Simulated scan of single mutants.
Amino acid sequence: MGIFLQVVLPIISVFIIGYLLQMWKKLDVKPVSAVTIYVFIPFLVFQAFMMKILVANFPSLSS
C-alpha cells in the first residue's frame, strides 16, 4: 500500500487534475507541453543526477 500512496497515487492525481482542468477551462495543450519539455524535464534530469551523486557520496541519504 505504501508504494501505491507514494508512486501511483500522485501520478493518477496529476492526470485527474489535468483532465478536470481541461474539461473546465478548455486549456490549449501546446504551451503546457512546451513548458514541460523545455523547463520541467531538464529539472527532473538534473535532480536525478544530483540525487545519484549525493547518494553515492553520502549513503545515509538513501534511507
Rank of each mutant, 00 (worst) to 15 (best):
S33M: 15
Q47V: 08
L21R: 09
L9E: 07
F40N: 07
G18H: 05
P10S: 05
F40L: 15
D28H: 07
P42H: 09
L5D: 04
A48L: 14
S63D: 10
F4W: 09
F58I: 11
S62I: 02
A48N: 09
W24N: 08
F49S: 03
L5G: 01
F46Q: 02
F40D: 06
K26F: 09
F49E: 05
V32Y: 12
W24G: 02
K52D: 04
M51I: 10
V35E: 06
P31G: 01
M23P: 00
L61K: 02
D28G: 01
F58D: 12
V55Y: 10
V39Y: 03
P31N: 05
N57Y: 08
I3E: 07
P42Q: 10
L54R: 10
F15G: 06
I53G: 01
A56K: 11
S60M: 15
S60W: 15
F15L: 13
Q22F: 06
S60H: 14
L54V: 06
K52N: 08
V14K: 03
P59V: 06
S63Q: 10
P31V: 03
F46E: 02
I53C: 01
I3L: 11
I12Q: 06
A48V: 08
K30F: 08
D28M: 07
P42I: 08
M51S: 12
I12L: 14
Q6L: 13
L9W: 08
L20V: 11
F58K: 10
M1K: 01
I16F: 10
V8L: 12
A34T: 13
I17E: 11
L27D: 07
S62C: 08
V55I: 15
N57G: 08
V29M: 09
I16L: 15
I11E: 01
A34C: 02
N57F: 12
P31L: 05
K26C: 06
Q47T: 11
L61C: 06
M1L: 05
G18N: 14
A56D: 13
F15M: 12
I11G: 01
Q22P: 00
K26P: 00
I12M: 13
F49V: 13
I41D: 05
M51Q: 12
F46K: 01
V55L: 04
S62E: 13
K52G: 04
I16H: 01
K52P: 00
F46H: 01
W24I: 11
M23I: 05
L21A: 15
Q47Y: 14
L9T: 04
P10T: 02
W24D: 05
L27C: 09
M51C: 03
I37P: 00
S60D: 14
I16C: 08
P10L: 03
M23A: 13
L21V: 09
I3M: 03
I53L: 13
T36M: 12
N57D: 12
L9D: 02
S60P: 00
K26N: 15
V45G: 01
K30T: 10
P31H: 06
I11D: 01
M1H: 03
